[in-house]
Design a protein around this nucleic acid. Structure first.
Length: 269
DNA sequence: AGCCAGGACAAGT
DNA sequence: ACTTGTCATGGC
């Protein structure tokens, strides 16, 4: 069945290509496909709607965070001038609720790396170790499917120094040392410390997982772009209006700076 | 060709 | 506690 969502509520292109996920692509213009939970999902822009197929309604509402009013976020964040501009530029972005394991591995791979290559490594991970879904699509492998994997086993991925980080994450998850249900229930700081037990997971990767998989909206991933932006616009910290939704603000800001070459022109407005 | 990439870590102050 | 070099690979 198809689920229809107004394009004013979701901008598929921005949502899929704002750096939060790595397994969506745009085939013909306005037609997006991705693999989620071992199923192929399609989103097509049609008139004033995005039509989602491949999910049940319940799955779609969860994955696309459809029960959250992003207009309310934007209203709150617009109290700050820079954030207001970022929200206008990037409206339609929704924070997807992605699977914890996939998110963790994906953002381990993301470190000191660029988005096209991140996608390539993840694709090879799926092709080598996931399950075949159809002629040219593979699921993201589970921790169990990767049980016992070593860095050498992953040499076809060409993940570089990150391979042993992936192996460490898989091992700690399969041993039960890292438990996603437990992390889900913990407050931000404690959840972050848990994830950082994994070699190769620091504050940034941990916060990405907490925001993009566990929807902890107070997680605030600070990558190189956001750090540059912080020192330029918020040397004394984020404004009050972001309290509790720092992660939402971060995603608008991240997309904004990346699409405006560092937003140099806004400063003296 | 060379710089840099949604960082983390270890070693050095 | 802060700063710096290093890590593997390849996109641009």
């Amino acid at each position: 069945m198809k689920i229809k969502v107004k394009l004013t509520e979701i901008n598929p292109r921005k949502t899929f290509f704002c750096g939060q996920c790595f397994r969506w692509c745009e085939g013909e213009s306005g037609v997006f496909s991705g693999i989620v939970g071992g199923k192929k999902i399609t989103v097509s822009e049609n008139g004033e709607f995005a039509e989602i197929s491949g999910f049940t309604e319940k799955e779609a509402r969860k994955y696309f965070d459809l029960d959250t009013d992003y207009g309310e976020y934007i209203k709150r964040l617009s109290a700050d001038k820079t954030l207001k501009a970022a929200c206008q530029c990037s409206s339609g972005i929704r924070i997807l609720r992605q699977e914890p394991f996939e998110t963790l591995i994906s953002f381990i791979i993301s470190q000191n790396n660029n988005i096209p290559r991140i996608s390539g490594i993840i694709l090879r991970l799926c092709e080598n170790f996931g399950e075949k879904i159809d002629e040219n699509n593979y699921s993201f492998p589970t921790a169990k499917q990767l049980f016992g994997i070593t860095a050498e086993d992953m040499s076809p991925l060409r993940a570089g120094f990150r391979a042993r980080y992936i192996a460490d994450a898989v091992s700690r998850i399969n041993s039960g040392e890292i438990d996603f249900d437990e992390i889900d229930a913990l407050p931000l700081e404690q959840a972050r410390e848990k994830l950082k037990l994994i070699t190769g997971v620091g504050d940034k990767v941990a916060d990405c997982v907490l925001l993009f998989a566990f929807r902890k909206t107070d997680a605030f991933p600070k990558d190189v772009w956001v750090k540059r932006l912080m020192s330029e616009f918020y040397p004394n910290g984020l404004p009050e209006c972001t309290k509790g939704i720092e992660g939402i603000a971060q995603q608008y800001l991240f997309d904004y700076v990346r699409n405006n070459n560092g937003l140099k022109s806004e400063k003296n407005e």
